[in-house]
């Protein structure tokens, strides 16, 4: 059913002839932004845009693992919030604390992902309910931890990943650390999804769980791993977002839906079996570009929600229509 399951040569040939429309969309949107605001063409303009998009791009790359495996992870936004709040509570303004806080947070992400995966795989709770429950729980934990109002701020060593720019670089003049993170984690996620056995099993499980099981895929382990990856990327996204935007109690809320939207724009198939990491990251770029455009047009924040809702429905409807026309 999916192109990935075809032999490699056939797959590359097909890909050459059929470019995922999301890439064209990104190019078109960015051209539109440059036309409306020429300053965007300067390094500070587009680098800031990339810096803004990094957290979402990494997050949606991770969320794609769960989507391809045939589930949803709605707990990622609250995991980001918990990461930011927890880090600021633990750091207590000590710059040396970053070195153990980030691993600790990743450990927490691992546990949350494991719980999500175990609940979905073994207790057979639909992932939507399981992760929504986790979302409520984690938000509650974040509130409990901070007592309702966050205290303290994140030390500069922690904020390094989200905020710091490397300056004095030829040609592009400045390079935010966040963009390096985007490239590094993007490549890792791409490699895991499209170049490993695990990625192939992930697609198989999402496409047809029964068939995958009969073919010898350890279905439970694969699904649990997908949730773990998703939670881990949520922690990374939280570190970068916290670094860029600072501490607030609902910093991560809404990101879970944006991640799903980005994956859907990138052509991922909900309920599994199909999806590409680069296209999803392009989907995140497109979504952020749309938000930037809305800002340039002077439209207020709530319009974002409306547009996001329309895109979400539109993209899924479009994908269904295409699939039906292709007779699959």
């Amino acid at each position: 059913m999916s192109a990935q399951s075809l032999p490699h040569i056939a797959a590359t040939q097909r890909r050459l002839f059929k470019i995922n429309p999301v890439y064209l969309l990104v190019v078109a949107l960015i051209l539109a932004i440059v036309v409306m605001n020429p300053a965007f063409g300067e390094p500070t303009g587009y680098m800031n845009y990339l810096k803004r998009v990094t957290a979402l791009a990494i997050l949606s790359g991770g969320a794609l693992y769960v989507i391809v495996s045939g589930g949803f992870d709605l707990s990622v936004g609250s995991m980001m919030t918990l990461t930011v709040i927890g880090s600021s509570m633990l750091a207590s303004n000590d710059p040396n604390s970053t070195y153990w806080i980030i691993p600790l947070m990743l450990g927490m992400g691992l546990i949350v992902g494991l719980i999500n995966g175990l609940v979905v795989s073994y207790l057979k709770v639909p992932s939507l309910i399981a992760t929504l429950g986790m979302m409520i729980t984690l938000n509650g934990v974040a509130f409990m931890w901070s007592g309702g109002a966050p205290r303290g701020y994140l030390p500069d060593t922690f904020r390094f990943f989200g905020r710091y720019n490397i300056t004095d670089i030829p040609v592009i003049s400045l390079l935010p650390v966040a963009v390096i993170c985007l490239v590094v984690f993007g490549v890792i996620l791409w490699w895991g999804m499209h170049r490993t056995n695990f990625g192939r099993m992930l697609h198989a499980v999402g496409d047809n769980q029964q068939a995958a099981r009969l073919a010898g895929v350890p279905v439970e382990r694969v699904r649990i791993s997908a949730f773990v990856i998703s939670s881990l990327t949520a922690v990374l996204a939280g570190v970068i977002l916290g670094g860029r935007a600072g501490v607030s109690v609902n910093i991560g809320s809404g990101f879970e839906l944006q991640a799903i939207t980005a994956a859907v724009i990138g052509g991922a198939q909900l309920l599994g079996g199909r999806g590409s990491v680069p296209a999803t990251i392009a989907g995140a770029l497109a979504l952020e570009a749309i938000f930037t455009l809305l800002n340039l047009l002077g439209l207020a924040q709530p319009v974002r929600l409306v547009v996001q809702g329309l895109i979400l429905i539109g993209a899924v409807a479009f994908a269904t229509y295409q699939r039906k026309r292709a007779g699959r």
């Binding site: 949803f72 939507l128 839906l257 799903i260 859907v264 909900l270 309920l271 924040q301 709530p302 319009v303 974002r304 929600l305 409306v306 547009v307 996001q308 809702g309 329309l310 979400l312 429905i313 899924v316 409807a317 269904t320 229509y321 039906k324």
Partner: peptide, 21 residues
């Protein structure tokens, strides 16, 4: 349109909330 009901109603929720706020 055969949109997955989760996504369709989630999208609707965003639209209503956006218009309202």
């Amino acid at each position: 349109l055969e949109v997955n009901p989760l996504i369709a109603t989630l999208g609707m929720s965003l639209i209503i909330q956006g218009v309202l706020s």
